[in-house]
Amino acid sequence: MIGPVAQILESWNYLVVIALMMGGLFIVISQNNLVKKLVGLAIFQTSVFIFYISVGKMAGGTAPILTDGPETLYSNPLPHVLILTAIVVGVATTALGLALVLRIHAAFGSIEDDEVLAMKAEAAEPRARRGGDMGDAV
């Protein structure tokens, strides 16, 4: 198999990962529900992780934990380190987003972004006055 078919098979991982990434991006842009947007963001993120790990893969290699065999091939440890930390940072930032969603729901009673935006537009007039009230309440 020489030519474009072989080329596509060899970089198959990259192509599918791009499709997954775009699927995540599609969820983030098209869906109105904020929780679903966050899930889309998480999917996008995980797809990027798969891309990095695919780059680090070495044909015929094994996990980068040294063995006694001198001729052992190891996969590249550098992408593993980058993604390892990125996963934990990712869950922390997703949690931050989720906390914001909870606060949005508490303030507006809705987690659909079009409804929230409509409410904000309607409340734009008395908003300044309400800010003053809140100050008094505190």
Binding site: A63, I65, L84, T85, I87, V88
Partner: peptide, 10 residues
């Protein structure tokens, strides 16, 4: 010596 570390253990 094996897979693991602070992030996973935490």
């Amino acid at each position: 010596y094996g897979p693991g570390g602070g992030f996973q253990a935490g």
